[in-house]
Amino acid sequence: MEENKKIILFDGVCNLCNGFIQFVIKRDNKDTFRYASLQSEIGKKLVYERGIDSNSIDSVVLIEPGVAYYIKSDAALQIGSDLNGFGSLSRILYLIPSGLRNIVYDLIARYRYAWFGKKDTCMIPTPELQSKFL
């Protein structure tokens, strides 16, 4: 793995999650992130190494190697803070207590397949994006 890269783990079969990853890739002007699905071997390994209960994770985990990891709305806001044009919005949303943010996050996560659909297999990155995926 590359040093100084934050890792986003996502549900590889979730259409909403895949759309979110495409959104992040387009706005990651500083090439901050690398990506892996939660279903991949590396995704499972990274979750296990951090003692994260994979049954409690509904879609996104952000890992800053050697620093910390974030789940649920904290992960989304940390990711947003590194995207061009979204840092201010992330700082404002951080003012909302995480318990309240996570109620909304959990609601969306619970119904994401029904609302946005689900793929049969994980997303396969294009050749241009392959280097960004672990």
Score class of each variant (00 low, 15 high):
residue 1 M to G: 11
residue 4 N to P: 02
residue 6 K to C: 03
residue 7 I to F: 09
residue 8 I to Q: 05
residue 10 F to D: 00
residue 11 D to E: 08
residue 12 G to S: 01
residue 22 Q to R: 10
residue 23 F to I: 07
residue 24 V to Q: 01
residue 26 K to V: 05
residue 29 N to Y: 11
residue 31 D to E: 14
residue 40 S to D: 07
residue 41 E to H: 09
residue 42 I to S: 10
residue 43 G to T: 06
residue 46 L to R: 08
residue 49 E to Q: 14
residue 51 G to F: 10
residue 52 I to G: 05
residue 54 S to H: 09
residue 55 N to A: 12
residue 56 S to G: 11
residue 57 I to H: 02
residue 61 V to T: 03
residue 63 I to E: 02
residue 68 A to C: 10
residue 70 Y to M: 13
residue 73 S to L: 02
residue 75 A to V: 03
residue 75 A to Q: 05
residue 78 Q to P: 06
residue 78 Q to G: 09
residue 81 S to K: 09
residue 88 S to T: 15
residue 93 L to F: 13
residue 94 Y to W: 11
residue 98 S to C: 06
residue 98 S to W: 04
residue 101 R to I: 04
residue 103 I to H: 08
residue 105 Y to A: 03
residue 106 D to R: 07
residue 107 L to Y: 15
residue 107 L to S: 15
residue 110 R to H: 15
residue 110 R to L: 10
residue 110 R to W: 08
residue 111 Y to T: 08
residue 114 A to Y: 13
residue 115 W to E: 09
residue 116 F to M: 02
residue 116 F to Y: 09
residue 117 G to M: 10
residue 120 D to G: 15
residue 121 T to Y: 13
residue 122 C to L: 08
residue 123 M to T: 14
residue 126 T to D: 06
residue 126 T to R: 06
residue 127 P to I: 11
residue 127 P to D: 13
